[in-house]
Nucleic acid binder design. Structure first.
Lengths: 134, 134
DNA sequence: ACATAACGTAACTTTACTAGTTGCGTTAAT
DNA sequence: ATTAACGCAACTAGTAAAGTTACGTTATGT
C-alpha cells in the first residue's frame, strides 16, 4: 500500500464516524471500507484511543466510536495523536560533526519547527464534521 | 545511513564551498568529509548542477565548484533543485474512493500546499553564505 | 602518445521503514 | 459455552533511499 497512509486512514475513518456518531464500527468493517487490514486499523486507531479521541470496546458487540462530539475534534488533534510529522524532521545522529554542519542544522531545524507549528494551526481550524461538507 | 540525507549532504557541501569558493573539490574529498560515497555525492550534486548551482569538470584536475557567488544561492534554491518536498505530499493512487475521502483529500492537500509554499519562502531568506556565521 | 585522475551512469546490493499477515490471548454479549 | 470483538506480539513483504561495483568518457600532464 502507499506510504504514510496512517493519517489518511485515521481521518477517513473519523470523518465517516462524524456522519453517524452513534454507530459502533468493528475493525473489520473499517478495514473493508478503507481497503486494508483489521490489525492495521486497530494499530492506527489505537493511537487515537490513547489520545482520547476514540473509544474501543472489546467483546461480542464491541467496536469503535468517537469519544466526543465530532465538532470538537480537529484535524490537528488527529495529526498530533499520530505523532506523524508530515514535515520531515532532520534526524540528527552523528554527534561529531563540523561547525558548519551544526550551524546549518540549527538554522534548518528552526525553520522546520516554525513550519510544523503553522501546519498545526491551520489543521486546527477544521473539525472532522466540517470537512465532510466542504 | 539515515533517510532523506540528500538535502543535508547538499547544504553541508555548499556551505563549505561558500567559505572557499575558488577551491575545486573532488567527489572523493566531499564524500570523505560527509562520511558517504563518491557516487552518492555525484548523484546529489548532479541535481544541483542541472539546476545551475554547481559546475563540475571532468578529467585530471576536475571536480566541483559553485556556479555563482554564494550570497546568490539560497537554501530554497537547493531545496527546489533536489525536488525534495520535506512536506509530505499525499500521493493519491486509488481513483475509486468515496466522497468523504475526496473532500478530505482536497482539504488536506490545500493546507499542505500552503505550508510548502511558506517553507520555500522562509528558506529563500537565507543564503549559503549567511548560514555559516549564524 | 600514454598514463592518470577525475566525472557520468548503469546495475546491483544493502538497509530501514511501513504495511500487511498470522496467531493467540482476553473480554464481553448472547 | 459459544461467539465475536479487541490487544498485542512476531513475522513477512514491499518499497525507497543509500551504498557499492564496474566501466566508459574526458581532460590533464609528462
Amino acid at each position: 500500500m502507499k506510504r504514510n497512509s496512517r493519517l489518511s486512514l485515521a481521518l477517513h475513518t473519523l470523518s465517516h464516524m462524524a456522519g453517524d456518531p452513534d454507530h459502533v464500527r468493528t475493525s473489520v468493517d473499517i478495514a473493508d471500507h478503507a481497503g486494508t487490514n483489521p490489525v492495521v486499523v486497530r494499530r492506527v486507531l489505537g493511537r487515537l484511543r490513547e489520545a482520547g479521541l476514540l473509544i474501543s470496546e472489546k467483546g461480542h458487540a464491541g467496536g469503535w466510536r468517537l469519544a466526543r462530539s465530532p465538532n470538537l475534534i480537529t484535524l490537528a488533534d488527529v495529526y498530533l495523536a499520530l505523532d506523524e510529522s508530515l514535515v520531515a524532521t532532520e534526524k540528527d545522529e552523528h554527534s561529531p560533526t563540523c561547525s558548519v554542519e551544526h550551524a546549518l542544522h540549527r538554522r534548518v531545524s528552526s525553520v522546520m519547527k516554525e513550519i510544523e507549528q503553522s501546519l498545526i494551526e491551520r489543521l486546527s481550524e477544521t473539525t472532522i464534521s466540517e470537512v465532510r461538507g466542504e
